[in-house]
Write a protein that binds this DNA or RNA. Structure first.
Length: 775
DNA sequence: GCGCAGCCCATTTTT
DNA sequence: TGGGCTGCGC
């Protein structure tokens, strides 16, 4: 970003108990220092506080600056209290950055911005206040993707659907996509429901939602979706937020999905002061529900909206911008803006053909060493790939040469196996009704409690309509589970009881350490000689560090699901290696863009599944990639690439041909490719383009759809835990029964659901009534 | 209940 | 080619 020097501490905000809310904003002559150094368009965007405003902010045009200045402007002008501004971002990182930068402008007042956060954290906050309106308790837990899939798997199995043919992952993605569109189970169309298991998709969604309520839990999609339900069914609640939020600000609007759009639209009905900032050319998350259409349609949705285009770029040279602009101009579906800069000259964007991926890595490594030897930093360099598997070649090369690098993105800290296990322990001691947590760790470390035992616990829990832990307590009193499993379960229950007694006594960290120690969890990894276990132990240590910053376990767990992410370690001088997606929002003086080949980039899969829309999104990704560069952008393509183990010769990406020649220069490594050869390839490229559309009709998705159309069946009833009151048994003393394992017998006595049965082929045993049937 | 060998399937990822 | 999952044998 430019002109950071104009950021100076702002004067203290007007201190008064009666801020005039109707102060005419445009006449507020509060010429705070924050307005200095803004270009005319930026200033325009900052002071247009009233009504609907769309700020189309191209790459590197000072978007964050506009957002933060706008906040400062509203606050310093006394137009609203900090708590009356709703500002939403997509990532925690963006929220944190905004908070920091606004703090730099207005000082302490920033702490009052209680409604600055991600969509999800703001929605969770609202949902906790009104949880009971959607049958939740305000203490609801937020499930991560892993829990979500496990739960869905259970539901699928409970419906006797083959979970190999119809995978829980696929069902989860459908549910997510429905939630992204704001669809509750009753609103899912037949056609949509038929995407899964011959039409059972809708039913599974419904059962899954019911299960979530029983578990007092939400998945990520629910946070927003429940908000929608609350706002639409309870206008009084919505009205309260209308009164509360005087101004709404949205970052990265092009990434919003339908649900988020509806949520914003409802909230904006209050004052109508909705300002969204985004760039349609950088919409790269369509596959995850983002609707570019939201930003394309903004002026229609909010008639009279003011549109401000930020096109002056402060980041890149004219050749980089020229190349990127020329490329993106090929897209049809865009609002259209052209970046410009007064940074004249600079180097042409290079396009280089190489033999294969190792050659590509070798060549790029050489360039990086060159750069370093010229006194520049590794920190200034990024290698941006389309798919993470392309990273391997670079990592190998960097390691061989001893070049320091860091991978950005990849598996997140809190999604690691050991961290999830540890969380499950904490969750279960905090809430004994957390069945998912119980299931996860009841046999981790191995205690001899196998699948069959767990299944029995589940059956018992279902038949008694209680939690798994509760069912366990009952079941160990009987002979349903015996031997090692039974004693292990008993011991586990005792452990849990002991740990719970320390809640509020020990500090969260100390409790957590004790639990992981006494459960044998830490020992399990110490004993494991796998190469990764050392790292896992270190992660657990890091986890303790994170927990130590909280006073209560609840507080910690609340944050962990939505807000917390681990700060990256001390900054060293390292090359950044990441996907193009991960690079959005970042900038580097020197950017390498390897793998520009048909099928790799644009990705064949994207083309197959989404046709022209997919291609346009890939092109936006290319645009994002090029515009990350400040000084140099270097594109590569290989003549041969290994795909799934086998070598394939490849064709240069069509995107290479779309770069305006005046901003590009071809550098061939050895003459396998030169620019004219590449041009000749254009014929073949367009042919493959046509064939990709042909292929789309034979794609798996299309096939699956056709198949599901053919074999439609009637939706069947449900069989999950229904909120039925826990009652005694239906069995009578003296009655003859059958038990799967023990055979026939006669009931001697009954104690609630616990039966004492004299079995004919076995001795007298205590069993649960859910396990026997009348004969 | 646990460990290993063969098998299948492969973007992008935030909350 | 390689990682993750399943099914089989102990």
């Amino acid at each position: 970003m430019s002109n950071p020097d104009s950021y100076r501490p702002a004067p203290p905000p007007p201190q008064s108990g009666s801020i005039s809310l109707q102060a005419m904003p445009t006449r507020t002559p509060q010429t705070g220092t924050y307005l200095e150094g803004l270009n005319p368009e930026q200033k325009d965007a900052v002071i247009a506080t009233e009504g609907a405003v769309l700020v189309l902010a191209g790459a590197g045009t000072g978007k964050t600056r506009v957002l933060t200045c706008r906040l400062a402007h509203i606050l310093e002008g006394g137009m609203a209290y900090p708590s009356q501004i709703l500002s939403v971002t997509f990532t925690n990182k963006a929220a944190r950055e905004m908070r920091e930068r606004v703090g730099g402008l207005i000082g302490q007042t920033v702490e009052g911005l209680t409604w600055l956060g991600t969509f999800h954290s703001v929605a969770a906050k609202i949902l906790r206040i009104h949880a009971e309106l959607v049958d939740l308790k305000s203490s609801f837990t937020i499930l991560d993707t892993d829990d979500q899939i496990r739960l869905i798997k259970q539901v699928i199995r409970s419906q006797d659907i083959d979970d190999k043919r119809w995978t829980p992952r696929y069902m989860a993605s459908l549910i997510d996509s429905w939630k992204n569109k704001g669809l509750t189970p009753d609103k899912v169309t037949h056609k949509e429901a038929f995407k899964f298991a011959e039409g059972k998709g809708g039913e599974i969604y419904k059962i899954y939602q019911d299960r979530l309520i029983v578990l007092n839990a939400c998945d990520f999609g629910d946070l927003l979706l429940h908000n929608l339900t609350i706002f639409t069914k309870h206008p009084d609640v919505l009205a309260k937020y209308h009164r509360k939020f005087r101004y709404i600000l949205v970052d990265e609007y092009q990434d919003t999905n339908v649900c988020q759009y509806l949520w914003l639209r409802l909230l904006a009905q209050g004052t109508g002061n909705l300002c969204v900032v985004g760039d349609d050319d950088q919409s790269i998350y369509g596959w995850r529900g983002a609707e570019v259409d939201n930003i394309l349609r903004f002026e229609k949705d909010f008639p009279g909206a003011k549109v401000v285009k930020l096109e002056r770029n402060y980041r890149s040279t004219e050749h980089i911008l020229g190349a990127a602009s020329g490329l993106i101009a090929t897209n049809e579906d865009r609002l259209g803006k052209t970046l410009w800069t007064d940074l004249e000259g600079g180097e042409l964007v290079t396009v280089t053909g190489v033999w294969d991926a190792p050659a590509e890595a070798r060549m790029i490594s050489n360039e990086i060493e060159n750069w370093k030897s010229q006194g520049r930093l590794y920190d200034e360099v990024a290698v941006l790939v389309r798919a993470s598997r392309q990273m391997r070649a670079f990592e190998e090369r960097f390691i061989a040469l001893g070049l320091p690098y860091r991978v950005i993105g990849g598996p997140r800290f809190f999604e690691r196996l050991e961290i999830r296990d540890a969380h499950a322990y904490l969750r279960i001691i905090l809430s004994e009704t957390d069945d998912l947590a119980f299931e996860r760790i009841v046999n981790t470390p191995k205690r001899g409690i196998g699948q069959t035992s767990v299944q029995k616990l589940q059956m018992a829990a279902r038949s008694m309509n209680v939690s798994l832990e509760h069912a366990t307590r009952e079941l160990v009193k009987t002979d349903e589970i015996r031997g090692k499993a039974r004693s292990a379960l008993k011991a586990f229950l005792l452990d849990a009881k002991r740990w719970r007694a320390d809640i509020g006594v020990l500090k969260p960290v100390d409790l957590a350490e004790r639990v992981l120690d006494e459960s044998g969890y830490t020992q399990m990894w110490r004993d494991n000689k796998d190469a990764k276990s050392q790292g896992r132990l270190e992660n657990l240590k890091e986890l303790m560090q994170a927990i130590s910053e909280f006073d209560t376990l609840e507080g910690y767990l609340e944050h962990v699901s939505l807000v917390l992410d681990v700060e990256s370690g001390p900054q060293e001088d390292e090359i950044s290696l990441m996907t193009l997606h991960a690079a959005k929002g970042l900038e580097f003086p020197l950017v390498f863009l390897p793998g520009w080949e048909e099928g790799v980039f644009p990705s064949q899969k994207s083309l197959d599944e989404n046709g022209l829309a997919g291609l346009e999104e890939e092109r936006r990704l290319a645009y994002v990639g090029i515009t990350r560069a400040r000084e140099k952008a270097k594109i590569y393509f290989a003549a041969n690439r290994q795909i799934y183990g086998s070598w394939q010769s490849s064709i240069p990406s069509r995107f290479i041909d779309e770069l305006p020649p005046q901003h590009v220069t071809a550098e061939a490594e050895t003459g396998y490719y030169d620019h004219s050869y590449n041009r000749g390839m254009a014929e073949e490229v367009s042919e493959s383009f046509v064939s990709s559309f042909e292929r789309s009709r034979t794609s798996p998705g299309w096939q699956r759809y056709k198949q599901s159309q053919k074999s439609a069946t009637v939706i069947t009833g449900t069989a999950t835990r229904k909120p039925v009151k826990n009652k005694g048994t239906n069995f009578k003393v003296g009655e003859r029964i059958f038990h799967q394992k023990f055979g026939y017998g006669t009931i001697k006595s009954a104690d609630g659901a616990k039966l004492t049965v004299a079995f004919e082929k076995s001795s007298e045993k205590k069993v649960l009534d859910g396990f026997v049937e009348k004969v």
